[in-house]
Design a protein around this nucleic acid. Sequence first.
RNA 1: CGGGGCGUAGCUCAGCCUGGUAGAGCGCUUGCUUUGGGAGCAAGAAGUCGCGAGUUCGAAUCCCGCCGCCCCGACCA
Length: 448
Amino acid sequence: MRLSRYFMPVLRETPKEAEIVSHQLMLRTGMVKQASAGIYSWLPLGYKVLMKIDRIVREEQNRAGAIEVLMPTIQSADLWRQSGRYEAYGKEMLRIADRHDREMLYGPTNEELITAIFRDGIKSYKDLPRNLYHIQWKFRDEVRPRFGVMRGREFLMKDAYSFDLTPEAGRLSYNRMFTAYLRTFARMGLKAVPMAADSGPIGGDMSHEFIILADTGESQVFCHKDLIEGAVPPIDTDYDGDLSPIIQRWTSLYAATDEKHDAAKFDEQVPKDKQVSARGIEVGHIFFFGTKYSEPMGCKVQGPDGQKIVVQMGSYGVGVSRLAGAIIEACHDAAGIVWPVPVAPFEVGLINLKAGDKDTDAAANDLYAKLEAAGIDVLLDDTDERAGGKFATMDLIGLPYQLIVGPKGVKAGEAEIKVRKGGARETLPMDAALAKVVAAVKAKRMLA
RNA sequence: CGGGGCGUAGCUCAGCCUGGUAGAGCGCUUGCUUUGGGAGCAAGAAGUCGCGAGUUCGAAUCCCGCCGCCCCGACCA
């Protein structure tokens, strides 16, 4: 993409409504624009990031055996009456009447709808297990939206729902999602730690929040240091195999959010030099809820013995739009965002320091064409802005690698590479610089 | 939903207390000079002062109502 033809309304100053750094940076870089409280338009740069997150989530869901569907944003109240939640949900549910005065709602979640879909689509125990997921916008009419896309009213979420015959089989489904989540967040360049959460109506140990660590995170978390550097399940993990060693490894060490934190237990279970107290952001939540929805909604299958079996369910959420903000919270410095390669809106920022200069233009255009040919997602700053402004903007939007071409370098046949994270710079012959950037990007695309 | 605050140019804000008909910086446009880390000079465009109703000779300013937005708390992915 050529910046001269792009739409990227960057702001030099920080809009006053933004309190936290990710919100400030998302507004300043022109990633999003607030439409009304807690509701955002995603501008090109932000949308690219959102789609890269979306894609990683999807790839890892598919890999774990989940099947993608797409459910509507608008649901009927009748469906929610079947589970008894229409009355119970409260004001966070946006209720709408259609032209026939039928009661509708903008879905805050999809348990009812997926349970009905699955119930009506299966006949026998042989149809289980299954895991269906979708990535869709949801709406919760929060009393007080804040923190930009981290806590908006409208948000993009991945929700997976597992269906099993028995609680034991449900645990296997749970483990698959648990494992997929470890990979999903690691691939985005994040340190995510699963922490035991309130497990709802079933009890037991089948609920975890996935918390990423960021100095500016919303809540205090405590955990064993080894969890932070824990080994991420490899790409060839066999999801049909026994995943319990992975789960065991990630759940046996102490990890708790502040509301569940037990200081005495922490001291007892974790050596002083392994105790980590940090800030965190919840980006995923998985739980097993058994027959909470399948029972009232009549989601049953006939078992081998002819008896009806109420299906065991679990649900598994990832805050896709929230992640865009959360990643920035975890990855920024004083100059701006520092994107991990897998979620960066562009992988390389190519700076033409003197647009309009024949030789510099030729060199920049040549590198641009070669980067594109190499399959690199590149943004070429070919505007006639001054050098200082270009550097500042490029640092602000945080592309992982900058390739800088100016008249001096062109004369010497050289280009400069700047690594956004850490700021290391290196001047190399044109082709060597190109090769090095391409190799660096490709090496970092798949972090896990 | 309790408490607090804010709405004036694209952005950040001054002016409001003490009414007299709108300002600054940045950005934007044009020209000249500059050109490797947010340049200089000159000229210029740009605001129904959130909306409505009042008080007044006169309202951005005072009064009332409404709307929008933000912050703290409670709540939440």
